[in-house]
Amino acid sequence: MILFILRRLLLAIPIMIGVAIVCFSLVHLAPGDPLVSVLPPDASADLQKQLRTLYGFDRSLPEQFFGWISRAVTGDLGTSIASSRSVTTEVMKAVKNTLILAAFATLIGFFFGSLFGFVAGYFRDTLVDKAASFISVMGVSVPHYWLGMVLVIIFSAQLGWLPATGMGAGGSAAWEWDWAHMKHLMLPAITMSVIPMGIISRTVRALVADILAQEFVVGLRAKGLRDFDVFRHVVKNVAPTALAVMGLQLGYLLGGSILIETVFAWPGTGFLLNSAIFQRDLPLLQGTILVLAIFFVLLNVLVDILQTTLDPRITRG
């Protein structure tokens, strides 16, 4: 088992190198001068050149890439142009915040998604199924920034139950496990959870329907198992795939939450990316993307390991 995990991790290394190349190239392909945000409009050509040399933008792209990647493996992602702070520190702070938000959203989404999925799969083509399917299709198709604003209008503006923006009292940017932070987490997490909820519910419904149609379910009933015992078998059959989908959803939410984090002013990676893009802060931008991509790859490895452990039919090759 340990050997298998090590093998998967080793296999992830070439993927990460590829990811680094792609994200570096993409950032440099994008138009716009990275120095425009720090340079005064009337800066002299001399000052421009000086700054360019300082940040290394005067060198060729391969040179810049190798410089960046060799420092990145030691944990140094460079310095943000806009804030002059270490990119690594900035990104890690933001990743932690996003991870908390995404994990909560995935948990909520997974819970309700599986609930709706099992109910819909078990009571196929009944009113319950239609209702559960309607909710999950809504979850996938409603624009979440819109849903976020609607929730803010209802629960913050009208009812005044929950705070509308931020992560903690007084613009706290460091997560703490207290009630104030939880209250701030509630609305963005719920808003974000509708995406995985919809997808997981559709997946689970299809899996349950597929499994219930299989001969072994008849076999289980022929053994004298009661409905609840049969349900346990169905759950164990659904679990590997459902958990894999959940893991991938968590990965998507890690990077794909720019809109929600902006609506709720959540100081996570989406928020960070947003400002990095607008300020042409190339070191911050490529650093954030790289870290997110690494998280995504690691999450995939984790899902792989989990699925292999749960489903005996997948061999540990």
Binding site: E215, F216, V218, G219, A222, K223, K236, N237, D311
Partner: peptide
């Protein structure tokens, strides 16, 4: 009790 035609399908795979 019952013996099924195709045990691969009639036994729970997991």
């Amino acid at each position: 009790s019952m013996i099924f035609q195709e045990p691969l399908l009639a036994l729970d795979p997991v």
